[in-house]
Design a binder for these strands. Structure first.
Length: 235
DNA sequence: AACCAGGACGTGA
DNA sequence: TCACGTCATGGT
């Protein structure tokens, strides 16, 4: 009986087969080229296209984590200002954030919006980050931190720690529901499973794909265009 | 001048 | 579980 239940669940996974996921990745790459995520302030123009050998040190790892938290429902341009502020004040580190005056940090991260909540998130995260002592956190450890949801956790794992977790964001759902490939109502984990099942186990593809989705959505899924002229519709 | 950005949490049903 | 309100700045 146990074997039957196990077999049934494998059968369900078989149903996830969809060759379009990889086809779309290739098409997006041709359309937009390598994106160079995650953007880092220490790099010329922030982006490091086609160079996947990042982050190179703990400073950059922590910056990616901070960026992932600050960019929640926020334009990246505003996040860059906040990160620059922290960096100029020499506050872009877990210990520095923890021991700094709250009013100073609030002032520095103000441009990224939701600054009261995000201050709290940075404090909780920095405290946890130090407790790892340089080790890579698991997904559930990240999710247990107040202020870290599935997308932020996967962004941190994928871009800061190079762990193969596919990132799902609102753009992903917008594009792929517009193409009628995924259902809008599907949960984060179900959509993630769908992508991961249909992609090669390649960290670079995971990193590029999410970045390409964001780039593509900015081109073809603004509130005025809303996906009508999306070149992926031919697939 | 509204509308929205690379979400997550708290609450009530 | 889930639908909805809340958090907040800055660009278009």
């Amino acid at each position: 009986m146990a074997w039957f239940i196990l077999g049934y669940s494998f059968f369900w996974y078989e149903n996830l087969n969809d060759h379009r996921i990889l086809l779309i990745y290739k098409k997006l790459f041709k359309l937009h080229g390598p994106q160079g995520w995650w953007p880092l302030s220490s790099i010329q123009n922030n982006y490091h296209s086609a160079d996947y050998n990042y982050p190179k040190n703990n400073q950059q790892i922590f910056e990616i984590c901070v960026g992932a938290i600050l960019t929640q429902n926020t334009n990246w341009h505003n996040v860059e200002k906040a990160i620059q502020n922290l960096k100029i004040q020499n506050l872009l580190g877990p210990k520095k954030i923890l021991k700094s005056n709250k009013k100073i940090i609030l002032e520095m991260i103000k441009p990224s919006g939701y600054f009261n909540q995000k201050y709290k998130k940075l404090i909780y995260f920095s405290d946890e980050y130090l407790s790892w002592k340089g080790n890579i956190p698991s997904r559930s450890i990240l999710l247990d931190i107040w202020g870290i949801g599935p997308e932020t956790a996967d962004s941190i794992l994928l871009y800061a720690y190079k762990k193969r977790h596919f990132v799902i964001d609102s753009y992903t759902k917008k594009i792929f529901s517009n193409l009628q490939i995924i259902d809008k109502k599907k949960s984060y984990d179900d959509v993630q499973k769908y992508f991961e099942y249909n992609l090669p186990r390649d960290i670079n593809i995971y990193q590029e794909y999410h970045a390409l989705i964001v780039a593509h959505a900015k081109c073809y899924y603004s509130r005025f265009v809303a996906g009508k002229s999306c070149p992926l519709q031919s697939i």
